[in-house]
Design a protein around this nucleic acid. Structure first.
Length: 211
DNA sequence: GACCAGGTCCTTG
DNA sequence: CAAGGACATGGT
């Protein structure tokens, strides 16, 4: 008899917790998290760090500054993250949303999580994963992030379900606490980078957790 | 040189 | 709704 989906997810979560312990990722301010969330789309974090440093040097690491910045200057600063033209447009769209709809991140933060999420997803270039990253890491809201790695790992252990139901499942088995969501997401990405990306599936022990 | 990176959007069948 | 391509640089 196969264990239920909830039980399997919990076994994986506990296993990764024991393997990696505390990993605190991404301790920037809200502006930085929002910018990083777009820059890291389909891109390694090391490249994003360089772009963030370049933006900071030029005083461009805020929604307000990006809103009024020259697009060509932004393009040059973020070039090392790839897709730099489309990402510049996305940063501009996000900054326009924050500045035009609210005037500041602080005012935006007065809104309920669901409303912020829905509006973020409405911004061109922001999908569910980017919106949830911004909510969880930037606004400290309990919105679990499902990325390609999470989907891949779940697929490997026989939980072949799509992103939306996976998000529901993780949120159902975990306390609604953004710090916990951040930990679990970080653990999953670390594990996937170690065993999935480098094609070491033979050494992956998650399947054996199925009980 | 091939392949992939903490996605998203648009077009097709 | 699923699948495929575009977006682009940098590292292995």
């Amino acid at each position: 008899m196969l264990a239920s989906s909830s039980a399997r997810i919990l076994r994986i979560i506990r296993y990764l917790e024991k393997k990696y312990g505390m990993l605190d990722w991404w301790q920037g301010n809200t502006d930085e998290v929002m910018i990083g969330a777009i820059l890291t789309q389909q891109t390694r974090w090391e490249n994003v760090k360089r772009a963030l440093a370049a933006l900071k040097e030029q005083g461009l690491c805020s929604m307000e500054a990006i809103f009024s910045a020259d697009p060509e200057i932004l393009e040059q600063a973020i070039r090392c993250t790839g897709f730099y033209r489309i990402k510049t447009q996305r940063l501009k769209s996000l900054a326009a949303h924050v500045m035009c709809s609210y005037g500041s991140i602080e005012l935006m933060a007065d809104e309920p999580t669901d409303k912020i999420r829905e509006q973020l997803i409405g911004v061109n270039g922001i999908g569910e994963e980017t919106a949830d990253s911004i909510l969880c890491y930037g606004f400290q809201r309990p919105s679990f992030i499902i990325d390609a790695y999470t989907e891949r790992i779940c697929q490997c252990v026989g939980l072949g379900i799509k992103r939306a139901p996976l998000k529901v499942l993780f949120e159902a088995v975990l306390p609604h606490d953004p710090m916990i969501y951040r930990q679990v997401h970080a653990h999953i990405v670390e594990y996937a980078k170690e065993y999935c990306v480098k094609k070491r599936c033979g050494e992956c022990t998650l399947v054996s957790l199925n009980g």
